[in-house]
């Protein structure tokens, strides 16, 4: 541990109300910490700038998954393990269940939370492409009340979000209207477990009368934020899956992303693999 625990203050209020009151009292001063799977890595490396931490781990208000006929509402404090094990998540939102299953190791999955994945705002976050294709909405809470925002507008840049300094993510809402789609997801990491994505994809598609009727494609690790491929989706919608479509879809997809060279991979590799994944997904729709 390269940080001195004496330099840090940690409080653990008993209720969500108490947490948002604290955030409101000193906006920006307190860093919420849930499972700690991101925060503690920075702490161990001596690189955690925030000195005041407020624990939101295991607050009952954040740990529920509520299912109504229209939507599923997942508390932001739910862990990857909670997601993996939930029946409706497994059956209707398999992209999210799969992403939860390949995030970190078992210990990370028992501690890491969906809300943490969202606010940490890494472009490589495993669950975010799934939230994009499911049209997720976020419920944000502060002493000023709750507001509901589409997830697609939430990430504004590299590690930047629309979260106000006194706000918390309270829940993630997914409409239950995707069970008729073919779901496709792949994580391309440096190894088969406990890896950070070089490229990841979550996609939904439906074919009718021999053509692509509806398609939703999102990629991670290929831009400053997780990205929905709007142009590619437009291109393929209404067309039959043919080799020429795969070639042009690859080309358009690669033009839509902005991958970089970093310690994990190269921009050229990421672009090519992103194109291949899009093509593989379309092939699967074609076979469906």
């Amino acid at each position: 541990m390269r940080s001195n625990p004496a330099d840090y203050q940690l409080v653990a209020p008993a209720s969500l109300q108490a947490v948002v009151s604290l955030l409101a009292a000193e906006p920006g001063a307190w860093l919420p910490i849930a499972g700690g799977t991101d925060v503690m890595v920075q702490y161990a490396a001596g690189k955690l700038p925030a000195r005041k931490l407020v624990s939101i781990w295991n607050l009952p208000e954040l740990r529920r998954i509520e299912v109504s006929p229209e939507e599923i509402r997942i508390g932001a404090g739910c862990t990857y393990t909670d997601l993996r094990e939930h029946e409706v998540v497994q059956s209707e939102f398999s992209l999210l269940a799969r992403a939860a299953a390949w995030t970190g190791g078992i210990a990370n999955q028992n501690r890491g939370t969906l809300g943490g994945n969202i606010v940490n705002a890494s472009p490589a976050a495993d669950s975010l492409p799934a939230l994009l294709v499911y049209d997720a909405e976020l419920i944000l809470i502060s002493v000023r009340g709750e507001r509901r925002v589409p997830y697609k507008d939430f990430h504004t840049g590299y590690k930047k979000t629309k979260l106000a300094s006194d706000e918390l993510v309270r829940a993630v809402c997914l409409a239950r209207r995707f069970s008729g789609y073919l779901a496709y997801t792949r994580k391309v990491g440096a190894r088969n477990a406990q890896a950070i994505s070089k490229v990841c994809i979550a996609a939904l598609g439906r074919r009718a009368s021999g053509v692509v009727e509806d398609v939703r494609i999102a990629l991670g690790s290929v831009a400053p934020v997780p990205l929905r491929l709007a142009e590619t989706e437009r291109l393929v919608t209404g067309k039959p899956v043919e080799p020429s479509l795969l070639v042009s879809a690859k080309r358009v997809a690669i033009a839509e992303i902005q991958p970089i060279d970093d310690i994990r991979s190269t921009a050229r590799y990421r672009a090519a693999v992103a194109g291949n994944l899009v093509a593989e997904f379309l092939e699967k729709i074609g076979e469906n």
Binding site: I254, A272, G275
Partner: peptide, 9 residues
């Protein structure tokens, strides 16, 4: 190898 490699800018 044409079939195996995705297009690269």
């Amino acid at each position: 190898e044409p079939q195996s490699v995705g297009g690269v800018r």
